[in-house]
């Protein structure tokens, strides 16, 4: 038996919107720790890891570990029927081939049940060890989204370089080139507007902008984004989900031919 009640149901709606462009089908794993998902895009270039910790739910009951295969577009269709202020409860019985999403309006005057068919998904689970990164950049998520969008109108790839001067996002295309440098800036009114660069050593990596743009669909989940870079690892683009966990996107770099 599984029953997860999330008062801030809009979080779940935002999570689905953040990942459904990247991943079509995925297994949602429920355990005592929380509600999680790990999935790669169809070309195995990017990976998304989601964790919503059990403590973040108003009610969390998960009698045994359960993996539920879902088509994310179908989940999204269901969750779009929930109001932004609705309380969402996810329910499933052991061995059942369906999951139920229950939506309650804030004043309890409307209650809706949406039952969705589960599917068998044969997915690979990758072990991602903790790593020391050469550079970690924290910046406003809206700024990062803007940069990715702007650069993708010029080129297909972005070179992200971190030096003592700051973090530079560069691209080149048929019509020309573009460079955007963000300097460390801690002297802002609100901490979420700061750009903070922790650099062990300079690093420069190239990535496909298409994926970066897809990651920025998670912008509504968090005011800040953390970009962790090392020359021998995929970049990690992390959006913290307040009080609950995170959504992390891993993207393999491009290398010179």
């Amino acid at each position: 038996m599984l029953e997860l009640r999330l008062v801030q149901g809009s979080l779940l709606k935002k999570v689905l919107e953040a990942i459904r462009e990247l991943v079509t089908d995925a297994n949602f794993d429920c355990s005592a720790t929380g509600f999680s998902l790990q999935a790669m895009d169809s070309s195995h270039v990017a990976l998304v890891a989601l964790l919503l910790r059990s403590e973040g739910f108003e009610h969390y009951r998960c009698d045994r570990n359960l993996s539920m295969g879902m088509n994310l577009n179908n989940v999204s269709k269901m969750l779009r029927c929930a109001g932004n202020n609705d309380i969402i409860t996810v329910k499933a019985d052991d061995g059942s081939d369906t999951v139920t999403f229950m939506f309650e309006s804030p004043n309890q005057d409307k209650i809706a049940d949406f039952e969705m068919k589960l599917m068998d998904i044969d997915s690979e689970h990758l072990g991602i060890p903790d790593a020391e990164y050469q550079a970690i950049v924290r910046m406003p998520s809206s700024e990062f989204a803007r940069i990715c969008k702007d650069l993708s109108s010029i080129g297909d790839t972005v070179i992200i370089s971190v030096t003592k001067e700051g973090v530079k996002f560069s691209t080149a295309g048929d019509i020309g080139t573009a460079n955007i440098v963000c300097r460390q800036n801690k002297t802002v009114d609100k901490p979420e507007e700061a750009t903070i660069i922790e650099m062990q050593e300079p690093v420069s990596l190239t990535f496909a902008l298409r994926y970066m743009n897809s990651f920025t669909k998670a912008t509504p989940l968090s005011e800040t984004v953390t970009i962790s870079l090392s020359s021998d690892l995929p970049v990690v683009v992390e959006y913290k989900i307040a009080e609950m966990g995170y959504i992390r996107f891993y993207l393999a770099p491009k290398i010179e031919e």
């Binding site: 790669m40 195995h44 072990g127 190239t206 393999a252 010179e256």
Partner: peptide, 14 residues
């Protein structure tokens, strides 16, 4: 421009 690496070149199946 460049060769796109795969995530599975960095992380192994559990």
């Amino acid at each position: 421009t460049g060769v796109q690496l795969s995530i599975t070149e960095f992380y192994r199946s559990e």
